[in-house]
Write a protein that binds this DNA or RNA. Structure first.
Length: 216
DNA sequence: ACATTAAGTGATT
DNA sequence: AATCACTTAATGT
């Protein structure tokens, strides 16, 4: 048995109680490494090979896809503590390059699991298999939601949902971002975002300042 | 004080 | 709802 990391062991307990086998928890504490990222740091870029699966234990991670045509970005989803990136599963098991880019939205920490274990544990530990399947399932559901929110919902609903997501991501009612950045995330024009934000401000749901939005 | 960047607005499609 | 053209406001040098 290799170097056992008590710290990681405890982090698994706190953030991933569904990984119930003690042997699995111990293995994670042996082969996993704790990695920290500062807010804004790029964790994984397009085209890079995924050789780790992250278990997010602190902070929030933003997952983004770039449009092939005009190089614009589309926000896919956020990851929070207790979650993992299901894209990384498929990517690393197929040994494919990443289609997405992930950045730390906040100061974040992950337990990085080398891929060779990810595969092996699926047959070894039922709770790990469950974990992987559930990660896929919930991501799939969320993606479907996102798709029909783009297809059927109005911009103002999307914007509001976005603001709440961001606020939750930082555990703060204040969002530091320009209208332009928000527009990029939502694939909308800056003007549209500005106008909708203004409307929300008039309704009293938010307060606007330069580079800053407060949820009320 | 001036330049730069963010935000607000109306008109057009 | 996007784009354009322009104004106004805030911030940095």
């Amino acid at each position: 048995m290799e170097h056992f990391n008590q710290n990681i062991f405890e982090l698994v307990h706190q953030n991933f109680p569904q990984l119930s086998e003690l042997a699995l928890q111990k293995e994670i504490a042996q082969v996993g490494t704790l990695k920290h990222f500062r807010a804004g740091e790029v964790i994984m870029n397009y085209g890079s090979y995924v050789k780790l699966v992250p278990l997010l234990v602190k902070g929030a991670i933003k997952v983004v896809r770039e449009d092939d045509e005009d190089g614009r970005e589309l926000l896919l989803y956020y990851l929070y503590a207790g979650e993992t990136c299901s894209m990384s599963f498929s990517c690393c098991m197929m040994n494919k390059r990443s289609d997405i880019r992930t950045t730390a939205e906040d100061d974040s920490a992950i337990i990085a699991i080398p891929i060779r274990y990810v595969d092996a544990w699926i047959s070894k530990y039922p709770s790990w298999k469950n974990f992987v399947m559930q990660a896929y399932d919930s991501r799939m559901r969320e993606m479907i939601q996102t798709i029909d929110s783009i297809a059927f919902k109005k911009m103002d609903e999307r914007l509001l949902k976005y603001l709440h997501e961001r606020s939750e991501a930082h555990a703060s009612k204040t969002i530091h971002s320009t209208h332009q950045e928000i527009a990029n995330d939502l694939n909308a024009s800056r003007e549209a975002v500005s106008r909708l934000l203004k409307k929300l401000e008039r309704d009293g749901t938010i307060a606007l300042e330069r580079n800053k939005i407060q949820l009320l």
